[in-house]
């Protein structure tokens, strides 16, 4: 968008607000002020406690030449160090695994990015799962499809 068009928009906005004020006068002020009073922000600390369980969330499952399969995820509902995340890829009876330590994050436990670069990962759709295991918790994500070309 060119600067002229931007400028025209700017001027019009001003006019609408100001002209509105000119036409409606104090009534407009009262209406707008009331709207702002009712405009109560939602802060995280005000939220109701959520009953959701601890679960593993997969945020990315992808494959690229040279890198292989990459899966990222985290464990919601718990913040702890000492656990381990394990990626499992399965297709047609072939099962591959990779693990890395999990990390306590600000509001979750991070698995980070797990990678499997193996010649057995042939083209097709693989089922990826991310499992988290610690002294107190063991939980596995739902299967996520991972397409290999």
């Amino acid at each position: 968008m060119g600067s002229t068009a931007t400028g025209r928009t700017r001027a019009r906005t001003t006019v609408l607000v100001l002209a509105g004020a000119a036409l409606l006068g104090i009534a407009a002020v009262v209406v707008v002020t009331a709207t702002r009073e009712a405009d109560t922000p939602v802060a995280f600390g005000d939220a109701e406690p959520l009953p959701a369980p601890v679960e593993v969330v997969v945020t990315a499952a992808e494959w690229s030449p040279g890198t292989g399969a990459e899966v990222a995820g985290y464990v919601s509902g718990i913040v702890e160090d000492g656990g381990e995340c394990t990626l499992t890829l399965e297709k047609g009876g072939v099962r591959l695994e990779a693990s890395r330590p999990a990390t306590a994050d600000a509001t979750t436990t991070a698995c980070g990015w797990l990678q499997i670069d193996d010649p057995q990962v042939t083209s097709g759709t693989w089922a990826a799962t991310l499992r988290y295991q610690s002294a107190t918790t063991a939980v596995t994500s739902p299967e996520t499809a991972l397409d290999v070309r």
């Binding site: 100001l18 002209a19 004020a21």
Partner: peptide, 27 residues
């Protein structure tokens, strides 16, 4: 239209009572 807009801007800005009473509506 743009000329009209410019004129209106000038007219309203030159009217201090209305300007002071104008709402704070930026979010």
């Amino acid at each position: 239209a743009a000329r009209l807009v410019a004129a209106l801007v000038a007219a309203v800005v030159l009217c201090p009572v209305l300007v002071v009473a104008a709402p704070a509506a930026s979010a």
